[in-house]
Design a binder for these strands. Structure first.
Length: 337
DNA sequence: AACCTGTTTGGTTTTACTTCA
DNA sequence: GCTGAAGTAAAACCAAACAGG
């Protein structure tokens, strides 16, 4: 069994599949497709039907013919910012996803409604009634009276009015279908904000209220921001851990240097010329200058940080502690000779 | 008017538990 | 008594909707 998932130009990802199934697609179409090719346990047998790929097109504009949709032509949508000449656009505007179709449109395109609903969708859908009040400021004027299908998920995926729905069980919330969400998601990738025109066009295409589209984009932006915050937080956490570790290492190094200094006072009195450098020109300081610097540093014994800084400025590339050790060893061998 | 942010609401999924064959 | 399937209630999660700034 082979499973392939494609975002974007489905024609490329599934060319091998589609070649076998003979499906023709336009390379211009943008789609979200999932291909499933089942090879049965009896591949050696003559079960050709097992080799037939199954491709699910999860966006309304994905290019595979919808043979499971009563041979209806695929309903294709375009983004509001696309012109009719742009890829993905069709002249079939205005008949989009209608899982949350307005009651007005319910009757005229019921076949399409059913066809566009994924049979495997667990998404609920509702029949809505809109009672528009007088005040435009009162958001609740736009009452949604919806009743929930109490049947199985595939039935819930359609927008048909059931007997239960007529009971007037009011809900204010509905879930968008996968197709609607996917289309909004694609729209969001293009533009994470909408101008009023785009909002209206999207709402029309998806058979949603403009307010729903607006809220969806708001929530989507919030989710994006939250995710980004989490990522940033994680990054800062790692930075903090790295710096803490570095700090710990430097503290340890400093302690070792202090111990070295107290155990070998003779060598530490020697001018530490090779341990210092001029902070301005970043060259190793002269003996006199170094002496001055060293004296200063020694006088300010408490200010170990400055010493560490100086040590850290050594141009050799070795770590300061190793360099100090090397110097001590050199002095020791010189003293022995 | 549009957006952000925090909160509420409710649908869906997961989990823990019980019952039963 | 043990096991696995089936059912169920509560918890957890997530997305839609709302309110206020």
């Amino acid at each position: 069994m082979e499973l392939a998932l494609s975002l974007g130009d489905a024609s490329k990802q599934f060319s091998s599949f589609l070649d076998k199934s003979g499906a023709k697609i336009s390379s211009k179409d943008l789609g979200f497709c999932m291909g499933l090719k089942i090879k049965g346990d009896h591949e050696d047998e003559d079960h050709h039907d097992h080799d037939l790929p199954l491709q699910l097109d999860l966006l309304p504009f994905s290019p595979v013919p919808r043979t499971h949709h009563h041979n209806q032509p695929p309903s294709q949508l375009r983004f509001p910012w696309q012109t009719e000449n742009e890829p993905g656009s069709t002249d079939g505007m205005g008949r989009g996803l209608d899982v949350n179709r307005f009651p007005v449109a319910e009757g005229e395109a019921e076949e399409g409604t059913t066809a566009l609903s994924s049979p495997n969708s667990t998404v609920s859908s509702f029949q809505m009634e809109f009672c528009i009040g007088n005040s435009r400021n009162n958001k609740r004027d736009l009452e949604i009276i919806e009743t929930h299908h109490q049947h199985n998920s595939s039935e819930r995926a359609s927008s048909r009015v059931s007997d239960d729905e007529e009971n007037g069980l009011t809900r204010k919330k509905l879930r968008l279908s996968k197709e609607q969400s996917a289309f909004l998601e694609e729209s969001f990738k293009e533009h994470n904000t909408l101008n009023p025109k785009q909002k209206l066009a999207l709402a029309k295409q998806l058979n949603l209220r403009p307010r729903q589209v607006e809220v969806w984009f708001q929530n989507r932006r919030a989710r994006t921001k939250l995710k980004q915050t989490e990522v940033d937080c994680e990054y800062l956490k790692r930075c903090c851990e790295t710096l803490t570790e570095e700090n710990r290492r430097l503290q340890k190094e400093l302690q070792e240097l202090r111990a070295l200094k107290s155990s070998q006072p003779f060598y530490m009195q020697l001018p530490a010329t090779t341990l210092t450098m001029c902070p301005s020109c970043e060259r190793v300081a002269t003996a006199a200058a170094a002496t001055t610097t060293t004296t200063t540093a020694t006088a300010a014994n408490d200010k170990d940080n400055s010493m560490a800084l100086q040590l850290g400025k050594t141009p050799s590339g070795l770590n300061p502690f190793s360099q100090a050790q090397a110097q001590v060893q050199a002095h020791q061998s010189a003293a022995l000779n």
